[in-house]
Design a binder for these strands. Structure first.
Lengths: 298, 298
DNA sequence: TTTTCATTATACTGCTTGTATAAATGTAAT
DNA sequence: ATTACATTTATACAAGCAGTATAATGAAAA
């Protein structure tokens, strides 16, 4: 039963939030969710994989909501980005996943550590793409530095902000503060041509893990985003547009959330998409289809 | 034998660097340093306390060198600060203590976690003091934010710089880059009166841990620094001055590094200090003596 | 020489993750 | 309804961990 598996995930997440990852033993999870050891290891090959399952089950939702905020919007609008960051911060606050990740990042489980590192890099990469949207191609040489600074800044300001419960300021204030810093910083470093890390470096990050834990989802995400943008500019608001977006979202979810994506569904929906919209945005649909195929053939 | 104890510390440190804290078992340390379990637990009450011993044995040296850089120098000189940071970064690189701390920060050992947190706060507090020296009292409301940003920035830029071994840039370049950012940032936030965390917050950090692991050393460090500054301004360069500084350094070391500071030594040296120099800098000597006494009477 | 104290070897407790296996239960097709 | 298959359970087990306990050994101080 998939339901019972999800139950275990939820129970374990709750326990991890309460006591931490290491301090929560599998025994705790067994009694907490009322299953036997055999069932547990039937669901998850190890404690680390359970954590990954928790992480995925939570972040697929957040990532989805975060990307939805961009639909029908100007991707250069800094306010949208701020909303996206706030969304993620609130999600992290509730799920405590960032804290748990810190704990797991240094555990003995090599696979788990790799997974966490990859998600960190993915997050950096996403942010870099958004910074490109916002600050423009001309600032690109400085945007990897900037993203790293922004990421660390917001994490630590948030940490210290919550150390003292009495005076904690709302998250949005911290985001705006950090964003103000970045606006100025990017201007300065561009003026002085100060660069530490070349964004081209990111290309060397990803080949190694392309076909690992998040096999091709990254490509798919990009293709999806591009396609949505194209649709938003090519079509006026209305039923047609929303229908298309719904189709795309469904395909994306099916590919990313299911272990066995139903190919017949995807093919059918893709055909609908092609016949209905292909004329104006053919090139985007094609690269979308390409990503789909690489996802299916992994 | 104190020598053997230090041997164990060194061996354990080497093993921790190679395999990490958690992945190194006490058994590994036993065979590595050729002692038996009984002896180990005779030296250290637990694995966590061994780590603390390693940390102290390494950082007392770095802290000492770092503070020495300030003697006879203008504390507002930004170049000195950069040197101090570089010193610490090189020390961390060699000892990998920052990596180990990350690992230990989230372990199950509550005492150890507390110790690590305290050292982090101490480090932030020291940096805040230095920022005050450099940027002046007028910028104080913005300096806690700034220090947190600087600290996280330099840590993460360094981390990503060393991810790709092929293109790692020298530490000093990263420090200068981050420092440039801070110079501009502090100006901006002061202009816009943007503040997230009030530096007064720091006062609430420390009472709780005053009499714990670093009982009174913090006070002593401050008193020592102030006294040295006073001496540097009150006396011309020459034998007198260096002699005084030597005396002070010795007292500080004896109090902070030895488990059983030799009171008779300290009293004698203090007396010398008083008769030779008291006239011009009496008030500083008095607060120094006060710190000493609180250290001795813990 | 005897006392004292650090050290050693060894066994033991109680915890951990993960494996193995036989019995019991549920479920779906015939 | 009965057969066949999959899931679940209870339980014992292996190998590892930190830390405790203890009796025997050594060496230096009294």
């Amino acid at each position: 039963m998939k339901n019972r598996r999800q139950d275990v995930i939820d129970t374990a997440h709750k326990l991890f939030i309460e006591k931490g990852y290491q301090a929560t033993s599998i025994q705790d999870i067994l009694v907490g969710s009322g299953i036997s050891k055999g069932t547990f290891y039937n669901y998850f090959p190890s404690k680390g994989e359970l954590f990954i399952a928790i992480f995925r089950s939570f972040y697929k939702r957040i990532r989805h909501e975060r990307d939805k905020l961009l639909i029908n919007q100007d991707s250069a609008d800094i306010e949208i980005f701020i909303q996206q960051i706030e969304l993620q911060m609130m999600g992290n606050k509730q799920s405590k996943l960032l804290v748990l990740i810190e704990e797991v990042r240094v555990s003995n489980d090599e696979e788990l550590k790799q997974f966490i590192n990859q998600t960190l890099l993915l997050s950096i990469r996403w942010m870099h793409g958004r910074f490109l949207d916002i600050f423009g191609e001309s600032k690109k040489p400085y945007l990897l530095d900037s993203v790293i600074i922004f990421h660390s800044m917001i994490t630590h300001m948030n940490y210290f902000n919550h150390r003292e419960t009495t005076v904690a300021k709302p998250e949005i204030q911290i985001i705006r503060y950090c964003m103000n810093r970045m606006i100025h910083t990017i201007d300065e470093v561009a003026k002085g041509k100060e660069q530490i890390l070349d964004p081209e470096l990111m290309d060397t990050w990803f080949p190694e893990f392309k076909n690992h834990l998040y096999p091709c989802h990254d490509d798919l995400l990009n293709a999806t985003l591009e396609l949505k943008k194209a649709i938003n500019t090519a079509f006026p608001c209305g039923e047609n547009r929303t229908r298309a977006v719904e189709l795309i979202d469904f395909i994306q979810d099916e590919l990313m959330q299911s272990d066995n994506p139903r190919e017949f569904l995807i093919e059918s929906l893709l055909a609908t998409l092609k016949t209905g919209y292909a004329s104006q945005i053919q090139v985007y649909i094609e690269s979308f289809e390409e990503s789909i195929n690489s996802c299916l053939s992994r």
